[in-house]
Amino acid sequence: MRCNYCEWRCELAGGDFGVCRMYIEDGGAIKERFPHSWSSCIPSRIESIPFYHVWPGSRSLVIGTCGCNFSCRYCSNGFVAKEDPGLVFDGMITLTPAELVRKARQMGCHNIVFNVNEPAMSFPTLVELAEVAGGAGIPMGCLTNAYTTEESTELLASIFSFFNVGLKGLSAGFNREYLGIPSAGPVLRNIRRLAATAHVEITTPVIELANDNELDEIARFIADVDPEIPWHVFRLLPEHEMKEARYPDIDAIDRALRSARKLLPYVYFHNFVGSDWVNTICPGCGATVIERFSLGCGGDRLHSFNCDGTVCPDCRREIRLHGVKVAWNAGEVRP
């Protein structure tokens, strides 16, 4: 029996777990090996995930499971995403959807964001969670590589209302060598699909001499889908199999983004301490409408939110925002 959650469409006959090792065939159905088991359940600033245009300033509960369907040579979460799930499982926590939503409330979180690994590795659990979270008025978003099948991309769109999609490279050679997948085709298709009905931001980690020559082409693709999609260009820290690689040159990448900035109003370049490219500039008048501070590696934070609701205070142009500013402690529930 085939698993149709992601583009690998693995055959799970005879007790195989497939590429991600997270599903198994059981009684004629594809089932999760580790339902409701979480590798992460921790409050975080939404900017640090990163979402720059979603409820700025809000506190998110960051959740994750384990398992991944890519084999990125530079994976920074390899200790969860790339470990055999059977081994990581020992360190995981088990929470039902109702318990998890309760923890989100207890820690004053405004929304829940799936991060760390791929949501496609835990579809049935996430469907259940979305139902309970939706009932409690807690929105859900995720980071994803969008390597899902067409049918399960619909499932993603039904679970989450905001996405940050990793678009790591376009050429088949790069996708094969660095990510371990045959092509970026399904990812591009799914970005179009998700952007049609949900809030989408895109993240591209830059690897010098591997995908830095594709930045213009990626920018053109995004502009064609929707030029207002915020684009996060990441300075990649060499991790996992690439630990020995050199650190990418910040000024060189900044220069390489010049033409992209003409096509897209919301281009951000970060993932290193003190980045100068994390503020939102009004595309209408050039005013700084949202200021942020970057500590690199999951340390970004809102510095000041200057919009008037969702518009520029100076020229009244609409700024792409999925939700307005939320006070950091707005979700606190005191007994």
Partner: peptide
């Protein structure tokens, strides 16, 4: 302690 919010390096 295994708490919610743990980091999961072994």
């Amino acid at each position: 302690f295994r708490t919610v919010g743990g980091a999961f390096r072994r």
